[in-house]
Design a protein around this nucleic acid. Structure first.
Lengths: 329, 329
DNA sequence: TTGTAGGCGTTATCAT
DNA sequence: ATGATAACGCCTACAA
């Protein structure tokens, strides 16, 4: 006795004194139904509290009428915003949204494959799902959109711009007199981080400045705090260009702990523009996260409905947000 | 051509030279199968890349093997954390998770009812869904858990403690010499806020102090900022007890704008312990949000599997987190 | 305009 | 141990 009232289309038909086909047509508007029949059906539906079983509908149609989204986590505003944008658009397009977090899972491949068998299309967010698994999903002919992740096979791809904004950020810092810019984060761990680091390097190079090796750490405030704290014991960079806001927030804490003023003694920048960034005056780069989700839903819809068959690869622009932590106004 | 490979159990049976019943049994382990048959089936499955259609399985079993969760939004860490906790536990219990945001929707009732017909059980988070709709869901005999929301009918209920912690917070402020405590937020808009306000009043009353009317505003940083900014033009409370962290963050901004120091000139407290709270030194109250989601999933599982039939109403404890903004350590 | 019948892909019963 | 066969609830030619 799942969701549906338990009432079947047969009972409605019986009560209305018509055939099930008429009930179906009346409900879906999928064929001619006399005014009289329609009214009888509507009344029977009301009296019985009939709600069509999604299971029946889906099986008959061969469609789940549901899309999936796979993401690494929902803590931290980044992914959550994407999911919200996705849900908003998907539901407007009449599709339910199934979620699947890979957080702390050991069998990601199998999980995603199972998940894929419950949806008409899939969005995969981030790089927790390996290429092999994605290839398998594509082999099952499941429409797929990859988000914030390098391309695989024929899947659509949707990314946000990293390099250009990172370079702009670096040049902004340089123009304010900063010279020793140090990147905080691990380029090896994520393509996005790699590109941000590349942008920083490009900015430095353009001004004939050297670039030190990145200060590697995980993308959490605690990791950033620890790494930067250790760093500041022995070195004094002009600016800390952090891989994301959380790391930057950790860096701010570390600076405070060792008695350094921001931005007077050291500048700090992040990436994402999370809420905490606004409230700490953190200079950062804003990504259109909700848009990203919405665009993914729209792209997936095109793929599922067959309106488009050739893959598309989009890159959404990002925008540096200059605040207090990167220097005098 | 949804997720599943397109291969059916009949093709597998044919290839393996057995009946479909044997294939089903072999795959599910739901009955005796000879070693020999099992091997033939396994090989056929592998060769054909067979994956059972969830639609077929669900229809035959009369179960969606999926739970739903309805929430107001995912921006802001509160709901996102709950959803994560929920997904984690639900998926461990072998159930997929469907999400439904009510954000910016006009037809919430209809949306939720439609949503309900796609799941075996439902968690409803917050008070965006009205009692009538919930009653309708319950009438459809759908197992339901209400989260952070007053009880309705026979649904399970799971809440976090508000009043006691609010009172404790008030008494902490009072013990630090604060007298003119002002509540910021609108008790009329949410039961949680109402209880937090009640707790504040109780704390003041216990010390023979008067309690002013709440400074009403929406639960966003912008609303809090504006309301407090206006307030501080004409009044000088000792402490601002905010309905949640976002409002409190807005209050911090407002205080800074009018040149007031926190906590020297005015203390500020929030509620939720979001990331930004940690990084601004905001005194707040921590709620076990992920736990809340996990417990909801577990409760729902009991209801769905029929292990328990009588409703349960739990209240999870909360914990004041004393930081910088409420006064000298 | 309407109803009958077949099909969607499983599971599960029940003879064998 | 195994395989027909009947559900499951709906949609949709097709025939009337």
């Amino acid at each position: 006795m799942p969701a549906e009232s338990g009432v079947t289309i047969y009972q409605v038909a019986a009560r209305a004194g018509v055939g099930i086909a008429t009930v179906s047509r009346a409900l879906r508007g999928s064929g001619p139904v006399s005014r009289r029949s329609r009214e009888k059906v509507e009344r029977a539906v009301r009296e019985l509290g009939f709600r069509p079983s999604q299971l029946g509908v889906s099986l008959a149609r061969g469609k789940h009428a549901a899309n999936g989204i796979v993401f690494p986590d929902l803590s931290g505003p980044y992914y959550a915003e994407v999911v919200i944008g996705y849900e908003e658009t998907a539901s407007r397009l009449g599709r339910s949204v199934l979620i699947c977090s890979t957080r702390g899972r050991d069998d990601i491949g199998a999980t995603v494959l199972g998940f894929a068998s419950r949806v008409d299309g899939l969005v995969i967010l981030g790089h927790d799902v390996d290429d092999t698994t994605i290839a398998a999903v594509l082999a099952a002919r499941l429409p797929t959109v990859l988000l914030a992740r390098p391309a695989v096979g024929t899947a659509d791809t949707l990314n946000t711009e990293n390099r250009r904004s990172a370079k702009a950020l670096a040049e902004h810092l340089i123009s304010h007199g900063h010279r020793a810019l140090r990147f905080v984060g691990d380029p090896a761990r994520a393509p996005d981080v790699r590109e941000r680091y590349a942008g920083l390097r490009a900015g430095l190079r353009a001004h004939g400045l050297p670039c030190r090796a990145p200060l590697r750490c995980a993308l959490t405030d605690e990791a950033g705090r620890y790494a930067v704290h250790e760093l500041l014991k022995s070195e004094r960079p002009d600016a800390l260009v952090c891989a994301n806001d959380e790391v930057a927030l950790g860096a701010l804490q570390a600076a405070a702990e060792v008695g350094l003023r921001v931005p007077a003694d050291v500048a700090v920048t992040g990436w994402d523009d999370v809420m905490a960034a606004r409230h700490t005056g953190l200079t950062t780069v804003r990504q259109p996260m909700r848009d990203l989700g919405a665009k993914a839903a729209a792209a997936l819809d095109e793929l599922i409905s067959g309106v488009r068959i050739t893959p598309r690869h989009d890159v959404l622009p990002t925008e540096p947000i200059i605040r207090r932590t990167c220097g005098p106004h």
